[in-house]
């Protein structure tokens, strides 16, 4: 059943009065301030961790970031502030825990792993990222074993699948070629088996490309499934991508064709007329 069958059409939501929702909005702000949704992103240097977080949550637009920790271990809080509403700014935040330099220096890695152990219990989601072309998994396996007991919820993300052999990404439709798709499936099975063995538990695994916006939704859903039930909505609110971003990179489509496909297959981007006069 279509979700719109169950609920009033969003287009009829002139009925939503922001003022009536003030207590809810205040409670949401308080929740974001008290315990911001937190994602730990773990993976060796060069697997595209920053690009992933930015693609999923748009952490590079209108945000201020505060970083705590050493220069190579970050506990970053991205504070997202909206335009002012009723004379006050609405704030929500995303917390990201990552070590951009992991895997670069064995001596430093010990420190990064200690920091991960310290902070992972705060994370709602842990995303372990490997690069699709990287067959050397020894460090990942070793680090997974060392962190397994503090990693209750983990998703394995296999990034950069557009670089899988034979490097024949179909730019026209922004999808892997048939040969690539076969190799991606083989790689996904292999990496999942090897890393799940190190983790001693099954792992959700998603092959994707943050650069191409390919399978980002599948990655997001896998992460959401692992997040605590009562906190999943916070990630959805912060989600900064849609299937339109993937479609926009299909170079074989003209703007007109793209619009026709969007109109036929995608739900409309509902606009909510929030009175600008109430914003300063």
């Amino acid at each position: 059943m279509n979700s719109n069958d169950q609920h009033p059409s969003p287009r009829n939501h002139a009925a939503i009065d922001p003022r009536a929702l003030e207590p809810v909005v205040s409670a949401i702000e308080a929740e974001f301030a008290k315990a911001p949704p937190t994602i730990a992103i773990i993976g060796l240097s060069g697997v595209g961790k920053s690009t992933i977080v930015n693609s999923l949550f748009g952490t590079r637009r209108d945000v201020s970031a505060t970083t705590r920790g050493t220069s190579r271990f970050h506990k970053r809080k991205f504070e997202i502030v909206s335009r002012r509403l009723y004379g006050t700014s609405l704030k929500c935040a995303l917390q990201v825990i990552d070590a951009p330099g992991l895997g670069e220096d064995a001596d430093l890695d010990d420190n990064y792993l200690k920091r991960y152990r310290q902070h992972l219990p705060e994370a709602d989601i842990a995303l372990w990222v490997v690069a699709a072309r990287n067959r050397a998994l020894a460090l990942d396996q070793q680090y997974l074993r060392r962190l397994a007991d503090v990693l209750p919820h983990v998703v394995l993300g296999i990034n950069q699948v557009d670089l899988v052999d034979p490097l024949s990404w179909n730019e026209s439709i922004n999808l892997p070629s048939k040969e690539q798709a076969k190799n991606i499936a083989i790689i996904a099975d292999d990496r999942r088996a090897k890393l799940a063995a190190a983790f001693s538990r099954p792992m959700r695994c998603v092959a994707f490309s943050a650069l191409k916006h390919y399978n980002l939704q599948a990655l997001f859903n896998a992460c959401l499934d692992e997040a605590p039930k009562h906190r999943r909505w916070m990630f959805e609110i912060l989600k900064a991508f849609s299937v339109r971003d993937w479609l926009a990179q299909a170079k074989g489509l003209s703007q007109k064709q793209r619009e026709a496909l969007e109109s036929k297959y995608l739900a409309a981007d509902d606009q909510f007329p929030i009175d600008d006069a109430s914003r300063e």
């Binding site: 939503i16 690009t51 637009r61 650069l211 916006h213």
Partner: peptide, 29 residues
């Protein structure tokens, strides 16, 4: 479902996703 989209709009988060050049920073990757 409309409530989440409404809240996104209310929080000023419905301003579109980052463009491809932002999302796909190859140097960061």
């Amino acid at each position: 479902p409309a409530i989440l989209r409404f809240l996104r709009a209310l929080f000023g988060l419905d301003r579109g996703a980052p463009d491809a050049s932002e999302a796909g920073d190859a140097t960061q990757d």
